[in-house]
Design a binder for these strands. Sequence first.
DNA 1: CCGATCCTTCGGCGGCGGCCGAAGCGTCGC
DNA 2: GCGACGCTTCGGCCGCCGCCGAAGGATCGG
Lengths: 241, 241
Amino acid sequence: MTAPADPLIAEAAALIGDPTRARMLGVLMDGRARTAKELASLAGVSAPTASGHVAKMTAAGLVSVATQGRHRYVRLAGAEVAELIERLMIFASVARPAVRPRTPAEAAFRKARTCYDHLAGRLAVELVAALVARDLLRRGHDGFEPTLAGERWFRARGVDVARARCSPRAFARCCLDWSERRDHLAGALGAALLAALIDGGVLARRKDERTLDVTTIGRRFFAEEVGLPDLGALERPGVLA
Amino acid sequence: MTAPADPLIAEAAALIGDPTRARMLGVLMDGRARTAKELASLAGVSAPTASGHVAKMTAAGLVSVATQGRHRYVRLAGAEVAELIERLMIFASVARPAVRPRTPAEAAFRKARTCYDHLAGRLAVELVAALVARDLLRRGHDGFEPTLAGERWFRARGVDVARARCSPRAFARCCLDWSERRDHLAGALGAALLAALIDGGVLARRKDERTLDVTTIGRRFFAEEVGLPDLGALERPGVLA
DNA sequence: CCGATCCTTCGGCGGCGGCCGAAGCGTCGC
DNA sequence: GCGACGCTTCGGCCGCCGCCGAAGGATCGG
């Protein structure tokens, strides 16, 4: 037998393979829910067209829809979808090494962005490395596991570790970073951490984008509480000390 | 800006999204090189059709082609492709939980198979777990790292650890297993281990399939040298002790 | 050399699917 | 209630792409 799921993977891939749907999924990769109309305009198609796409993607389990009044909010169906799309980006960057010059927007995107509901980019990778170096986080059975000191560190920053731990989804998975090719923190703990960082004014979302900005508060935070003093260096290629 | 690579991921996904190409890629997931004609017959299409598909996938970097005399051997372009397809299988199994009864063929496939050039399936994740439990393998910076005793263990089984380490590709990555949702050993070390196990008669490939069979030699090997006595249990769902 | 084998290119056919405008349905605000 | 708004369904158009058979290199065996 060949792989048992061949037709299924073809179906999913074909859905992602349409440029318009790919654009929609790219928009949804920030983890936010969008109304069908927003998606239509962000993807550059008419409302009926977008509606059809959403219906197909819903049926296939790529996105989920929540009806609220006369609005229908669309979001990625789950972490598996986000990881799948991240994989596609990784493949694309390997298959077609970027020739074009790196724009400032792309540099910022590589530095810090959301990956579904957690932090990604060089900042995310360096953050994990720093936590591991301080023995606040360890690589465990599957994914990560905070140490006792680490649990305190997370709690002090407003992350409800206990709540994350009993979440139905994986607690602290590792997720391969598209731009860095190194693991960052995903799972319930990763999501809670990103929420806390945004809530604490450390990171700021942009409208309609996945890119995240480090605030003034954030620069102090990463310098003093994580040990990453020179965030500017994160935008430049190369290995950080 | 939306994700910078949206059109690129759409292109790759669209290629995988064709059922015939998906079937071809599924065949190639065993890591073996196939002639165009073999691919055509395994995918159930005529030679010209297969040729066109191969040309497109080559241009996109999904497969690579090596000309040898009048044969053209097609293989997956690299580990990124295999990991991408594995992700698609993971998504598919989450989105459409298998309703159909589990066939013997599928049970064997879940138990042991190739994932591109390394071992996957329940046997693979249990093998990694056993090596970690014996402190022969540890989770490291990115992926795995054998301990000193582990290096000896690998070498004694015919794995050239030093050679794998200076291979251009990643040394010992972790790769998320489709059926088990746990990591198994990939990268140059994983590839070398699979090669050594097949060479040593522990595992046997099937013709035209990814499924691997554990030989009589293999049952002794896993019982005595790994500490997995009851391989039959691997075919049954549930957690092994 | 000459047939056999492998593979490709070409031309033409057919169908799937994305796209839009118009029209229909449900929900909210006044 | 009655518009306004968000969304969906419907119908029709159009282009893309997968498919095959036939024909044209390319390479091997004798």
